[in-house]
Design a protein around this nucleic acid. Structure first.
Length: 176
DNA sequence: CCCTGATTCGC
DNA sequence: GCGAATCAGG
């Protein structure tokens, strides 16, 4: 996948809309990372958005001690009207590729939006939502509770009592 | 801990 | 030109 004009345009619109790089990266869902997005933005010269290039900033050249001292002559920020009569640029031509959430719902999934495996963090509930074979398969994604397993508070309880009806056979009850 | 963007560097 | 790695901050 390369940066086609369409993608670049979309990237610009999103970026100018105020979406974060990671958010844009996810939205594009082309396997891009936020680094890729930021890198492209940087290359495009859109870095430092919404920032008023009035002065000061461009005047200072800070030699970052990352590896080598690179002679930064000047920041290429011509602050020019990139939008050339493209009013639609401010709008998001989305909705066409609506993910269309699966119609079937588990018993309850109201506390948080299910996340894809990509968005799953170590601290997120791994309770499966939907059919693992389906492309819409997602995880609970709620805050995980340390100690009780890879699930959130809600699902942790379910995980260990999948068959509540079965309680007829009450577990051993020790005295003391 | 999570997140954010900015910049440099190797391919 | 591209994106990862890194830096720097919230």
């Amino acid at each position: 996948m390369s940066w086609t004009d369409e993608r670049i345009d979309l990237l610009q619109s999103m970026w100018l809309q105020g979406m974060s790089a990671s958010r844009i990266a996810k939205e594009l869902a082309n396997g891009l990372t936020r680094n890729a997005v930021i890198g492209k933005v940087y290359r495009l010269g859109l870095s430092g958005r919404a920032k008023t290039p009035s002065a000061t900033v461009a005047a200072h050249s800070h030699p970052r001690p990352q590896h080598k001292s690179t002679p930064r002559p000047s920041a290429p920020r011509p602050s020019s009207p990139m939008v050339q009569g493209n009013t639609a640029l401010a709008m998001q031509p989305m909705a066409s590729a609506a993910p269309a959430p699966a119609p079937n719902k588990e018993v309850v999934v109201a506390m948080a939006e299910p996340v894809t495996i990509m968005d799953l963090r170590e601290s997120m509930c791994r309770w499966p939502i939907g059919d693992p074979t389906a492309s819409e398969f997602r995880f609970c994604g709620a805050k995980k509770i340390p100690g009780v397993g890879p699930y959130c508070a809600c699902h942790a309880g379910v995980a260990y009592q999948p068959q509540l009806d079965r309680r007829r056979q009450r577990p051993v009850q020790k005295t003391g």
